[in-house]
Design a protein around this nucleic acid. Structure first.
Lengths: 196, 196
DNA sequence: AGCCCTATTGAGCAAACGCTCAGCCCCGTC
DNA sequence: GACGGGGCTGAGCGTTTGCTCAATAGGGCT
């Protein structure tokens, strides 16, 4: 991502980078279904030919998704904070409005992963990354005596899966679940895991 | 689904019913992405014109999904069994290979629900139905003294969401999670809820 | 100026999709 | 046999995709 900032400073940002970031923006704004190559060319001010010179559409999607997922993984588990504060931040931001766009893209990627191997790889890496980051935080907290967990890996998997499931419920517009309630559910599971 | 058998027995099963059930079969076999109107006409042995006479594609999908979801809701929570046996069956079949097709369709429906109001309605009804069925079982078990839960509705929501999240993880082919492990996770949450 | 070469363009192609519509087939009625 | 009409057909339309390719613009080098 340092490439990005450096490129934006330059007078003539790499056209390839322009295309990539236009794709990221459009994906976050409108989701995959409404993001087509033509929309990317218009947003980035680039001809259709150049876009296809640099990317095949599948690869462009995968590259943009990788940027987005990496960014989230970096933001969610900020380094240097005490583990309990990291978890608190994780719970607080789990269902924040800004996270909604991310989850929509996550579900869309899951959908596409069956057909597109590039996206499957990106999604798999992001999953592993988020899961192991969560594992690390749980381990650090346990080492610091903040909590006691019988099986940190299993707890991380359950937290991640519940997070995912609740986010999916929220996205589907279920009237029986609010953002605040979803956060409570996630915190509740963690409390149960620590107590049990 | 008794309609199906009855229809197959009849000499001239309703063409409309033939189309509907061909759609159900194809959705279960190949998922939505690989199920197009042409595939339905071929499977049901019907001309494209007749299909479009009876259904618009969006409505046909929604109708087929409704059949599938209703069937699952009916099968999962069989009436007449003791609540603890119902829960055991729920856990045992939660990630069975046959359930995989269902979850793929569930995710695809979630995806489409934002664009298609008919599917959003069908999905919403199915969600409510499954959630309240789970609530009922939890309530019945508590009444029978099988377990004690602080908040049955919340527990039902958490179980459903964890189920959903784990199924999503399995579908995405995550190598870190097996069907058996997913079942253990779900049972573990229930045990925690009962204990806590 | 003349030349070359890379970056860039955009009209248009091929494929895939849902859906239409002119017409065919078949059966009941007179 | 003639006629009428509803069930049914399928070639093909219109649209939307991702992507190609001949053509162009423009800057550096001689």
């Amino acid at each position: 991502m340092t490439d990005t900032d450096a490129a934006e400073d330059r007078q003539t940002p790499d056209r390839r980078t322009q295309i990539l970031h236009a794709t990221v923006d459009l994906l976050l704004e409108n989701g995959l279904a409404a993001t087509r190559t033509r929309a990317v060319t218009e947003r980035s001010g680039v001809g259709t030919g150049l876009l296809n010179h640099y990317f095949r559409w599948n690869d462009l999607r995968a590259a943009a998704w990788k940027l987005i997922f990496d960014e989230v993984a970096k933001d969610t588990f900020a380094p240097g904070l005490p583990p309990d504060q990291v978890m608190d931040r994780y719970f607080a931001e789990a269902f924040a409005p800004e996270a909604e766009r991310f989850w929509r893209l996550w579900l869309e990627a899951t959908e596409l992963a069956k057909q597109d191997e590039a996206i499957a790889r990106v999604l798999g890496e992001a999953q592993t990354r988020l899961d192991s980051a969560l594992c690390d935080v749980l381990t650090a907290g346990q080492a610091a005596g903040l909590w006691t967990l019988a099986d940190r890996d299993a707890t991380a998997t359950r937290l991640g899966a519940l997070h995912d499931g609740l986010a999916g419920l929220l996205l589907s517009g279920s009237p029986r679940l609010t953002r605040a309630a979803a956060e409570v559910h996630l915190r509740h599971l963690f409390a149960l895991e620590c107590a049990g």
